[in-house]
Every structure is written in C-alpha cells, then in structure tokens.
Design a protein around this nucleic acid. Sequence first.
DNA 1: TACTGGATTCACT
DNA 2: GTGAATCCAGTAA
Length: 187
Amino acid sequence: MLLKLKSLRKVNKDFFNRDTVDVAKELLGKVIAKGKCAGIIVETEAYKDDPASHAHKITPRSKIMLDTYGHVYVYFIYGNYHCLNFTCEEGKPGAVLIRAIEPISGLNIMKKRRGISDIKNLTNGPGKLCQALNITREDNGKEINKTIHLYQGIKPKAMCRSKRIGIKKGLEYEWRFYIKDNPFVSR
DNA sequence: TACTGGATTCACT
DNA sequence: GTGAATCCAGTAA
C-alpha cells in the first residue's frame, strides 16, 4: 500500500462529534500517524454507555470520554500495554478503540520498538500498535492532530462487523468493525 | 492503605 | 488452548 501522507487531507475534530458507532465504521481506512510512523486503520471497536465500557461509570480517568470529542484517550492495561481511543459525541460518553493498523510508514522504527521483524505482528493488536507508534499516557487528553495525526486514507472495499472481543458477564455488543480479508486484523 | 481485576500479549504445551 | 506477567485505576475500609 503506497500512500503519501503529505498528499492526504487531515481529518478534523468535527468528524468525531456524532454517533460513536458511525465514527468507528468510518475510521476504517483512515491513516493514523505519530512522528515518522503511520498506518491505515483496519480494525476498530465502539465503546458507548454500556456496562462493558469505561464510559459506563465516569471516573477521573474516563471523564474525557464524556467531556470531549476528537481527543485522544490512552490508558494503561495489564501492567504492560497501552490502548488508544478517540473520544466521540459531545456531551455523551463514547470512544472508539483502535484495535489494529496496517503499517505504511516508519516500518524500521516500529520493528525496532516492537523488537520483532515480522511485519504481520507489528501492529495487529491494540497494545502492539501503541508500542509500535510510541503512544503512551503522554498522549492522553491531547486533541486530535496535536501529537497523533489522522488523515483521510482509502475507502475500504468491504467492511465486516462482529461481536466485541473480551466480552464479559454475558454482555454482547456487535460494535467491532474491521476491513474484510485484511491480514493485519487482530483476530 | 490494601486489595482486586482488567478494552492484552506472549510463551509454552 | 492455557496461563503468567505486570501495574495502575478504582473501590472499600
């Protein structure tokens, strides 16, 4: 996949001020970039005000999901990993988790950060892509296009929808979206 | 202050 | 397929 970042239009903040599920769908194919590293978003998950979401119970950490849209929400999990979200819908709790990207730029830097050479395993998971792009809690709360940039990318040929991964307590939500047949989709 | 569990990943079987 | 690693946020006291 050959895409020149400079030729792409930026996605502005207003893109995020609408229904979280719509944002999750339309983020597929967009290009996310930090520093010299970039990739096409191939898998997302929508988190709204449901019991499996951080947004369900607003705390100081998750308050950003209620208060903002078009902001970066990064949290640390399982003692090892970060997860990258974009907040949506002004006045309503919601965010979209970026689960996987297809790396297009800065591959050598990403390989070094990940400590592997296998491209397929570089960014095919939420923790992996944060490590590859060097996304940390430093980025948390920043507006879109300040440290992490988002560009119009490709229009996916076919999109799939499935149940969210990590479903607990019998809760099921079909709010996971991914580009069909893309090798970088996590599962 | 102490305890619990998690939107994950990786090594091992 | 299974289980360990790991540490922070949230909760209870």
